[in-house]
Amino acid sequence: MKSPLLSLPGAVAAEGQDEGVAAHYGDLFREQRALADGKGLVDLSHHGVVTVTGADRLSWLHLLLTQHVSELPVGQATEALILSANGHIEHALYLVDDGETVWVHVEPGTQDALVAYLESMKFYYRVEVADRTEDFAVVHLPAGSITEAPDGVVVRETPYGRDLFLPRAELEAYAAAHGPLAGTLAYEALRVEGHRPRVGFETDHRTIPHELGWLGTAVHLDKGCYRGQETVARVQNLGKPPRRLVFLHLDGSDVHLPGHGTPVRLAADGEDGRQLGFITTSARHHELGPIALALVKRNVPLDAELMAGDTAAAQESVVEV
């Protein structure tokens, strides 16, 4: 779904998973600085929006999600995962309950699969699941923003800012009144700085929550059973995850950033060395310079100098080993 904000002067369209909204509006670092200062907004209207209503909505979701939501207070934001039977991450849900409806936003293009799965699990529970992507657009306000949400708009407030579930018909007028606008490149640079994983970037077909540090925000270790819970418990109690997320400071002299999937190796082994992981997201930060997240094997030494393709990289640990 193409955002109407792409028609604004200076807007440059994003590609790949963020297609449909602006990558930037002409000045990446200015946009980053504005967000870091608590100003402006980010158009995330390409995200999927799903709602769950009905008397059993929280108790039912509690059975399906990795997070404890059966007694989720009204207005309290949380995030949760849906896992495969083998414990691999399939969906990340960013949700809030307004007292009558659970509002969820998810990665672009994943809402159909999510709705299909939820519908298959309804059974006798008093719930209704709906894809509201055509009616509502997600808008992100950075932490510290004093911009107000319109009356009646559901807000999901987190330490990183507020996500508004804005009626899609109001997106242009709201953006015009509450700029400056920042694109997804600025938003992603701050996400990488904050070590926050994203499905489709930091995940592949075998990623488990422990590898990305999602245990602290999206997984409740003391709740009842859910699909994939056996893997979560087994790794938590008896073992270690096979991989771990790391934050990389990249060599700032390189012109090009290593893209998603770029092999990561030990610098001492050179370009012909054994691959130990891969770049998940890279970005240019207004203060830190080129940075990235990468998923590497657990036994990679914490002090090892790495190479992302032909770019030197110094790592910081994100997930304890």
Rank of each mutant, 00 (worst) to 15 (best):
residue 129 V to T: 03
residue 135 D to C: 06
residue 162 R to P: 02
residue 97 D to V: 08
residue 113 A to N: 11
residue 153 V to M: 00
residue 69 V to M: 09
residue 151 D to T: 14
residue 87 G to F: 02
residue 118 L to T: 00
residue 108 P to H: 03
residue 152 G to Q: 13
residue 114 L to C: 08
residue 155 V to A: 12
residue 109 G to H: 01
residue 143 A to G: 00
residue 161 G to L: 04
residue 124 Y to F: 15
residue 118 L to F: 12
residue 137 A to K: 04
residue 74 V to F: 02
residue 71 E to Y: 07
residue 103 W to M: 05
residue 133 T to Q: 06
residue 130 A to M: 07
residue 77 A to I: 09
residue 71 E to I: 11
residue 119 E to G: 06
residue 122 K to N: 05
residue 71 E to G: 13
residue 135 D to T: 10
residue 89 I to N: 07
residue 116 A to I: 09
residue 110 T to C: 05
residue 90 E to T: 10
residue 148 E to S: 05
residue 162 R to I: 00
residue 68 H to R: 15
residue 149 A to C: 01
residue 123 F to D: 09
residue 132 R to W: 07
residue 87 G to A: 02
residue 135 D to M: 07
residue 120 S to E: 11
residue 135 D to F: 08
residue 66 T to W: 15
residue 113 A to V: 12
residue 125 Y to C: 05
residue 142 P to I: 06
residue 67 Q to E: 13
residue 89 I to W: 13
residue 146 I to L: 10
residue 82 I to W: 12
residue 98 D to L: 15
residue 82 I to C: 06
residue 126 R to F: 03
residue 146 I to S: 09
residue 99 G to Q: 00
residue 83 L to K: 11
residue 120 S to L: 13
residue 113 A to P: 01
residue 78 T to E: 05
residue 65 L to E: 00
residue 140 H to D: 04
residue 134 E to R: 14
residue 116 A to F: 09
residue 126 R to M: 06
residue 125 Y to T: 12
residue 117 Y to Q: 15
residue 160 Y to C: 02
residue 116 A to C: 10
residue 149 A to H: 03
residue 129 V to P: 05
residue 118 L to Y: 06
residue 135 D to A: 12
residue 122 K to G: 03
residue 147 T to S: 04
residue 111 Q to E: 14
residue 112 D to S: 14
residue 76 Q to E: 12
residue 76 Q to N: 07
residue 112 D to G: 08
residue 121 M to R: 15
residue 77 A to M: 10
residue 102 V to R: 04
residue 129 V to D: 01
residue 67 Q to H: 08
residue 67 Q to A: 14
residue 137 A to F: 00
residue 89 I to M: 11
residue 78 T to G: 10
residue 117 Y to T: 11
residue 143 A to R: 03
residue 130 A to E: 13
residue 149 A to N: 02
residue 66 T to P: 11
residue 125 Y to A: 15
residue 158 T to D: 10
residue 91 H to F: 12
residue 76 Q to V: 12
residue 160 Y to Q: 07
